[in-house]
């Protein structure tokens, strides 16, 4: 890893400079993560007086627990749906804005600000819109003979959190797609036009392939987002219900551990999620390294 060609000769100063960051990292990140790993292999007696090593017991139980397995499937569905919906919409909008010269900025501003809406607020907003007594969407859905009730119907609840989580993420994806599109050289488009390719053909054969690094990057980021940052969306709307229908993996760690105080199982779940983030991060950075070489 690089430094400058010449460096300052100080001995103690650099340690002082990295100390605050490292102390916080060790106390609040690395130590607790280690604790999570440790307690995922242990069982505490009911009075919290002693702990015993139980090996992979919690993990084995977890993979036999139908609730957990269902939650894995549910989380996958949720993550995929949100990633596809928000990236799809964002790509269409970014392509449209990229076509415009002057009006583009105005549209961009209108599309960017939801980034600043927190997941909790996004949840509340959509909860209100889907609200069965006063919400506007159930009122409209009634015309189609659909009786909307996300408090009782698990599918409705899942749709609600997918919509809220996707809505919140459009801005982010839009911004990165737009940046990606703007870095595609205009001359390529012109060359393709001279070669007789129409606007749609040009997009699919020239622009979209060149955008693939951005697309890949966004996929990773979106998976990360749906796994972890949507806690607020779920907590503000369905709180994992009805009947576990929206209990994603992260939300389950919270309910099992913080609410249910089932330490061992919750720790094992944490560790599994940690492995997942590590894999995502490694993939992302591998890819960043490759991109740097271009």
């Amino acid at each position: 890893m690089d430094t400058k060609r010449t460096v300052f000769p100080s001995q103690g100063l650099p340690y002082l400079l990295v100390a605050p960051q490292l102390i916080i990292t060790i106390i609040f990140f690395i130590w607790p993560a280690g604790q999570a790993v440790k307690s995922s292999f242990e069982r505490e007696d009911p009075f919290g007086l002693s702990t015993s090593f139980v090996g992979l017991l919690h993990y084995l139980r977890l993979f036999q627990e139908p609730d957990y397995l269902a939650s894995v499937g549910r989380t996958a569905l949720f993550a995929l749906a949100v990633t596809i919906i928000s990236m799809g919409l964002a790509l269409v909008l970014a392509v449209a804005v990229n076509r415009l010269i002057r009006a583009g900025t105005a549209y961009s501003t209108m599309l960017l600000w939801p980034y600043a809406v927190s997941p909790v607020v996004a949840g509340i907003l959509w909860w209100f819109i889907f609200n069965s007594s006063t919400g506007i969407l159930p009122y409209m859905l009634e015309f189609f003979g659909l009786d909307w009730n996300h408090q009782l119907n698990g599918t409705h609840a899942m749709i609600l959190i997918i919509v809220a989580a996707s809505w919140k993420q459009i801005s982010y994806n839009f911004l990165f797609f737009l940046a990606g599109l703007q870095s595609v050289p205009q001359s390529l488009n012109e060359a393709a036009a001279i070669d007789g390719a129409g606007p749609f053909k040009r997009f699919w054969t020239i622009v979209f392939p060149l955008l693939s690094p951005t697309t890949f990057f966004l996929m990773i980021v979106n998976l990360n987002y749906t796994m972890f940052d949507t806690f607020g969306v779920i907590d503000a709307t369905t709180a994992g219900g009805p009947n576990q229908a929206t209990n994603t993996l992260v939300y389950k760690v919270y309910t099992d551990g913080y609410i249910g105080l089932n330490l061992g199982s919750s720790s094992a779940q944490s560790v599994i999620l940690m492995l997942f983030v590590i894999v995502l991060t490694v993939i992302q950075f591998r890819y960043v390294e490759r991109r740097v070489q271009y």
């Binding site: 890893m1 460096v7 650099p14 990140f29 993560a33 551990g257 913080y258």
Partner: peptide, 27 residues
Amino acid sequence: FRFPGRVLAFWLIFITLMLPVEVRIIP
């Protein structure tokens, strides 16, 4: 600066990326 432990410090900081609050709530 170039100091012993510099690369280790970098990696320790890097690790925080892999440990969001959500996966270490209780501890």
